[in-house]
Design a protein around this nucleic acid. Structure first.
Lengths: 200, 200
DNA sequence: TATCACAATTATACACTGTTCAATTAAAAA
DNA sequence: TTTTTAATTGAACAGTGTATAATTGTGATA
């Protein structure tokens, strides 16, 4: 009988999430196990499963957390950076977070919701936050006439960087002897922004 | 005793691969099961596991197959298309294949090799083939001075389209009320190619 | 304070998964 | 026909997630 009421419900959620994220960072999604998380926090499997409505719910909650960590890290990268360098800082920040937290970052994109389950509001919000940051920065260097397109363009640029980052991490670029995926991504972003009237 | 030597080793591999790909298309990677494949082909689990050196080997073989299907489909899309339209046909072909074979396509990128296992030659070849197609088409519309950059640029453009395609399929664009990810990807590719001197 | 009711937590059972390997069995060789 | 060889199996094992009946601690009630 492990530890009944050693923690409030909220403390327990926090404990499971925190330990779960650690495990995810160690093992990656494919070897992640709710049972192992339960073992580590000293509660039973049932408790973990109930509290997050199944392992999928737990993974989603962990991924939300990772998203927040990521957004925070991006914002931090912008400190003391001015002008067009801010765009480069975002691209670099995207890559650096993914490289540093490979398993956590990959889990976000490897996990697929069960067909019946809709994307929970909390995860949607965290995702939107990252987009908002980029949209703000893109709008800042676009000429007035193009500003209405900032949101669309930001989404598209994130997708562009995301593609390069993903390929870099799974080794697709290595296969082509490409040694500077970050440089490639940065160049693409510059070209697109210039095509839309930005001055870099 | 199901069916000893009803098939040669090669026939059996083909049978398992074919049925395995069907199952992958039905269930997606996360619910894919080597046991279920064995059941469907009427052989035992051990046979399937031995023949492909574990479930990871089977998945890799299936993904290689999917890659070939994809390359073939891209080449087919180029038939009777000329000039700059060929680039657009490739972008559209990328999206269409992924949409039509969502589970097969996703499995390619969701599966991660065990840390000890190197990428098998066969999979590497299939991946390279897709790149070769794109490089050829990119080189064709680049001015002479830029042709040496065709391979690098092709890799980068694939990554760009891939990012848009992936985001479209997991719903990231829907979250931003973006209704035309393919249009976005096509626009980016045009802008980049023009920046490199192509005439579209 | 003693009792009760409720809610949290557990233990257990179930149906799966992939891997391994001794035992079996069919086909090929002698 | 007998022996050898190699493919194939079946069973055991250690995991997985989910569901649920049985427990148990806690806070409210008398």
């Amino acid at each position: 009988m492990g530890r009944r009421s050693d923690h409030s419900r909220e403390e327990l959620e926090e404990l499971i999430l925190s330990e779960g994220q650690k495990l995810m960072a160690e093992t990656g999604l494919s070897r992640f196990s709710a049972r192992e998380v339960a073992k580590r926090v000293g509660y039973s499997v049932g408790t973990v499963s109930n509290l997050f409505a199944g392992v999928d719910g737990l993974i989603i909650a962990i991924n939300s957390r990772t998203f927040r960590l990521w957004s925070d890290s991006l914002e931090a990268n912008l400190h003391n950076v001015t002008g067009a360098d801010r765009i480069d800082a975002l691209v670099r920040g995207y890559f650096e977070f993914a490289e540093k937290h490979l398993n956590l970052w990959s889990a976000i994109y490897e996990h697929r919701l069960p067909p019946d389950m809709a994307m929970p509001e909390t995860l949607a919000e965290e995702r939107t936050r990252l987009t908002t940051i980029v949209t703000r920065e893109v709008a800042a260097i676009l000429p007035e006439s193009e500003k209405p397109e900032a949101a669309r363009l930001a989404g598209s640029l994130i997708a562009t960087v995301h593609g390069h980052c993903g390929f870099a991490l799974i080794g697709s670029f290595a296969l082509l002897n490409e040694k500077d995926p970050l440089g490639l991504a940065t160049d693409r972003v510059h070209e697109v922004l210039i095509a839309h009237g930005a001055t870099l």
